[in-house]
Structure formats: structure tokens, C-alpha cells
């Protein structure tokens, strides 16, 4: 029955954690926060999902997005550092623009992009670690290995998190 409470709780907590993650990401270049912390916050939200809904469901939903997420993060991080080279200010030079649009007054620059890259890469890697760790612990799955067909068991009991469907 733990899952019931957890599932009720994560309806409230998951959006909250994701929102805090975004806030931390956007303010991180000047104030406490940053891509790494934001990524851990978002991963905490996903960890909650894994605990309440099971690794299988989470993997089915976002499993395929993880590798592109890490790739985008790495490329964005290097790209933001390289921007300075193209403008002649040197590798990792900070270049800033300001956005003034109605009530929004936001400073955007290569450090923000770098933070975004860190955020994506760390989120992808952390979620991949957690899914990898929870596959055999939280529920025993017959998750297919790459290139192999899934093993079909004859009489399989209903899995947690899927009874309702």
C-alpha cells in the first residue's frame, strides 16, 4: 500500500520538483543554483516516479530519450564554450545578451547555455543510472537486453503499478 500514498504524494511533488528545477537552472549563473543542482532536483522527481510507478513504466515513457538527452547536453556544453572562440574572445569566454520584453528582464548568455548543457547531460545520466539500478531491485523484470528477444514466462502475476489498467 506504500505505492498508493507515494502516488498521491508524487502528484503534488513531481510538478513542484520540476518547477524548482527550472527555477534553479535559470537563476544559477548569478545566484545559488545551476545546472547540476537543477538536474539533481529533476532526477529526484523521476526517482519518485520510479518508486511509485515502477521502473518499467518510467523506462517505457522516457527510456529512449535519455541517450539523446546526454548527447545534446554534451554538445550544448562544448558549443557554448566554443562560441567565445568564434567571436575571438577565447574558449569559455562569457558572452551576454539581455532580454527586455514587457515585464521580463532576463540576462542570457553562454554560461546559461553551458548550465543548460550540464543540466541535460546530468539529468540523462542520473536517470539512466537510477533506471539501471532499479531494474532488478525494485521489480524483477524480464527487460530485454539489446538485440535479444524478451523472455516470455508462462504464468506471470500482475505487476505492481499495472493492476489498475
Amino acid at each position: 500500500m506504500i505505492e498508493l500514498y507515494l502516488r498521491l504524494l508524487d502528484r503534488v511533488l513531481t510538478p513542484l520538483l520540476l518547477l524548482i528545477g527550472v527555477v534553479l537552472l535559470l537563476r544559477g549563473h548569478d545566484a545559488p543554483g545551476g545546472g547540476f543542482i537543477a538536474a539533481l532536483m529533476v532526477s529526484a522527481a523521476i526517482a519518485l516516479q520510479i518508486l511509485s510507478n515502477g521502473a518499467r513504466l518510467v523506462r517505457a515513457r522516457i527510456g529512449r530519450a535519455l541517450q539523446p538527452l546526454i548527447a545534446t547536453g554534451l554538445l550544448l556544453g562544448v558549443g557554448s564554450a566554443l562560441l567565445g572562440v568564434f567571436t575571438g574572445q577565447g574558449f569559455f569566454a562569457g558572452i551576454w545578451w539581455s532580454i527586455h520584453w514587457g515585464p521580463i528582464d532576463y540576462k542570457i548568455g553562454t554560461p546559461v547555455l553551458f548550465d543548460l548543457g550540464v543540466f541535460l547531460a546530468v539529468t540523462g545520466a542520473t536517470i539512466a543510472f537510477m533506471l539501471g539500478l532499479s531494474t532488478n531491485v525494485i521489480e524483477t523484470t524480464d527487460e530485454p537486453r539489446l538485440g535479444k528477444r524478451p523472455v516470455q514466462h508462462a504464468a506471470q502475476p500482475a505487476r505492481r503499478g499495472e493492476e489498475a489498467q
Partner: peptide
């Protein structure tokens, strides 16, 4: 500036490979 390449290049290439 090129001294950053031994760090930046493999990182970019790893990102590219994953992409």
C-alpha cells in the same frame, strides 16, 4: 586557446557519437 582542444574535442566527439 587550442590548449582547450584536448578537453573539448573528445567531449564534443562523445556527444556526437551518442547523438
Amino acid at each position: 586557446t587550442w590548449l582547450a582542444l584536448p578537453v573539448a574535442l573528445p567531449m564534443a566527439a562523445a556527444g556526437l557519437l551518442l547523438a
